[in-house]
Design a protein around this nucleic acid. Structure first.
Length: 114
DNA sequence: GCGCTGACGCGAT
DNA sequence: CATCGCGCCAGCG
């Protein structure tokens, strides 16, 4: 577990960066992959504060596949746009999961990591 | 130290 | 399948 909130932030950002292009993950998933089970809200907070344009924050959604940002907001439209640009199908503010997120475990922890 | 707030999650209805 | 309610965790005034 992270000793400081700064560590947690770094871990969460790392987990987000680990999401493969064209795939999506829930806030809870991201937090879990970051080694912070149950801190979905923290993951959301971190993303809301983030300013890095290279960070694939748009690949993070609610557990039900719904876009978390308020519909019609700037960020909402931006997220839709970026997702579609990656070939992700977005319908009625929701994302059709192209694939399972289970692959992320290997992407983050590695195939041989405990 | 306390209460409010939020880019959340999940079971119940 | 769409909603509602309650629980959770951190940040902030």
């Amino acid at each position: 577990m992270p000793a400081t909130s700064a560590d947690a932030t770094v871990r969460i950002l790392a987990a987000v960066r680990a999401i493969p292009r064209g795939q999506v993950a829930g806030y809870g998933e991201v937090a879990r992959l970051a080694g912070l089970p149950g801190r979905a809200r923290l993951a959301a907070k971190v993303l809301s504060q983030n300013e890095d344009p290279d960070l694939p924050w748009h690949r993070v959604l609610r557990s039900d596949g719904r876009i978390a940002l308020p519909e019609g907001s700037k960020g909402y439209r931006e997220q839709c746009r970026r997702l579609r640009a990656e070939g992700v199908a977005v319908e009625r503010g929701r994302v059709r999961r192209p694939r399972a997120v289970s692959d992320l475990d290997a992407a983050v922890w590695g195939p041989q990591s405990p």
